[in-house]
Lab assay of single mutants.
Amino acid sequence: CETCDRYISGRVLEAGGKHYHPTCARCVRCHQMFTEGEEMYLTGSEVWHPICKQAAR
């Protein structure tokens, strides 16, 4: 997992080739988790909900 550096077994979320436990992938702006299939916007090592990234501009 990109966030906690632990092995992932079971469900995995992926953004930009990086992998996360579903509970570790959180938006840097709103701190909410991502749901399965939800779009993730990756900037460097930061993961955003698209609407949060747009609002931060």
Rank of each mutant, 00 (worst) to 15 (best):
R29Q: 11
E2Y: 15
S9F: 15
C52I: 00
C4V: 01
H21A: 01
Q54V: 08
T35Y: 14
I51F: 07
C4G: 00
Q54Y: 02
R26A: 12
L42F: 15
L13E: 03
T3Y: 09
C52G: 02
C1V: 01
R26S: 14
R57G: 11
R57L: 09
T43Y: 04
Y41H: 15
L42V: 15
C4K: 02
C24M: 01
A56S: 12
S45E: 11
G17M: 06
Q32N: 15
Y20K: 03
T3M: 08
L13I: 13
Y20Q: 02
R11G: 07
S9R: 08
K18T: 01
Q32T: 10
A25P: 05
V47L: 12
F34R: 04
M40V: 07
A56Y: 05
E14V: 06
P22L: 11
A15F: 15
H49L: 01
Y20P: 08
T23H: 09
G17F: 00
R57E: 15
V28K: 10
G17E: 12
S9P: 06
K53M: 07
T3V: 04
Y20T: 05
F34W: 02
E39N: 08
E39W: 00
H31Y: 09
G44T: 08
I51H: 14
T35H: 05
E39R: 06
T43Q: 09
E38H: 06
P22C: 01
K18Y: 00
L42R: 09
Y20F: 10
E36R: 08
I8V: 01
A55I: 15
W48M: 15
Y41R: 14
C52T: 00
E46C: 08
G10Q: 03
H49R: 01
E14Y: 06
Q54L: 09
S9Y: 07
L13T: 13
R57A: 15
H21E: 00
E39Y: 03
H19Y: 13
C27S: 02
E38N: 11
H31I: 04
A25W: 08
T35V: 10
Y20V: 03
Y41L: 12
C30H: 02
K18I: 02
C52H: 01
T3C: 07
I51L: 09
G10P: 05
Q32P: 00
E2I: 15
K53Y: 09
C52S: 01
Q54N: 15
A15P: 01
G10V: 02
V12Q: 09
I51E: 12
C4F: 00
T3K: 04
Y7P: 14
Q54M: 11
E39S: 07
R57W: 06
Q32F: 03
C27A: 02
T3E: 09
L13R: 06
M40H: 14
L13S: 03
Y41N: 11
A55Q: 08
R11K: 15
L13A: 09
G44V: 04
R29Y: 11
S45D: 12
Y7E: 15
E38I: 03
H31F: 07
V12C: 08
G16L: 02
T3L: 11
